[in-house]
């Protein structure tokens, strides 16, 4: 999509804005800052009973962690839209699907055209670090129902494992396979399916039946984690591949 994506630091003019621009920028920043401070001051205090309201209804949410209860049950519409926004990001940066990529594995060892020998110490560290990070991600996902944690945190940790793996230099990800598209959209698909099924059964979108609330939340969170982790890692990989020498990509 962004065929002409370019990052350039203009050496000649960096730090040499004209005086008019500087004054205009200063005025704009001061005005924005003042209006923000005024907005905060004039908004008054937040209603103090919100936390109490959540605590009161926590039993109905199916989870024990008030943050997860708000994010995935009471205000899950917001979370649904967040997942949708992330999918839009994925669509914008998704590499074209190559016909030669059929049957290719997502993660493969990069043994051709490797310009630098991978660091053996780093590779051995990664052997421990990557499974540990994935395990930690799973733990964060599971524990999100009762204590701090949740889908976004778990996905970030898992994506971090992928970032470390791709920085190790030995492994590469095949982003052009169709599984990537499925994984990125799975979270939103499951979320919308759950919402639609709810709408049919209980009559209200996204108001889970109390008996199945915790199962449904875990289901949604699991697939959301997969999607967010894929999209975050895709974002990093695409940005990184822009800087790679031409021989390293799409083999």
């Amino acid at each position: 999509m962004f065929l002409k994506l370019e990052f350039k630091e203009n050496q000649a003019t960096s730090g040499e804005l004209s005086t008019t621009t500087r004054v205009l920028l200063a005025i704009a920043i001061v005005a924005l800052g003042t209006s923000l401070i005024y907005a905060i001051l004039s908004a008054g205090k937040a209603p103090p009973d919100l936390a109490a309201q959540v605590a009161e209804k926590l039993d109905l949410s199916g989870v024990g962690n008030p943050v997860t209860a708000v994010l995935l049950n009471f205000r899950s519409y917001d979370t649904l839209l967040e997942v949708a926004v992330l999918l839009v990001v994925a669509v914008a940066i998704m590499p074209p699907r190559l016909s030669s990529s059929a049957g290719k594995r997502f993660l493969f060892v990069n043994d051709t055209h490797n310009p630098h020998v991978p660091d053996p110490i780093l590779l051995n560290l990664l052997k421990w670090l990557v499974p540990l990070a994935i395990l930690l991600g799973g733990y964060l996902l599971w524990t999100g129902a009762y204590s701090p944690g949740g889908a976004f945190q778990a996905a970030a940790v898992i994506a971090g494992a992928g970032v470390a793996l791709s920085l190790g230099g030995r492994h590469k990800f095949a982003w052009e396979i169709s599984g990537v598209r499925l994984a990125s959209s799975l979270g939103l698909l499951v979320f919308v399916t759950v919402a639609a099924t709810n709408a049919f059964i209980t009559g209200t979108t996204l108001q889970y039946p109390i008996d199945h609330a915790s199962t449904l939340i875990l289901l949604v969170e699991t697939f959301t984690t997969v999607s967010i982790a894929t999209i975050l890692l895709l974002l990093f990989a695409q940005l990184k591949s822009l800087a790679d020498p031409p021989g390293e990509m799409h083999q």
Partner: peptide
Amino acid sequence: QTRESNGVS
């Protein structure tokens, strides 16, 4: 030129 041969999208 190298960027185009990268097929970056």
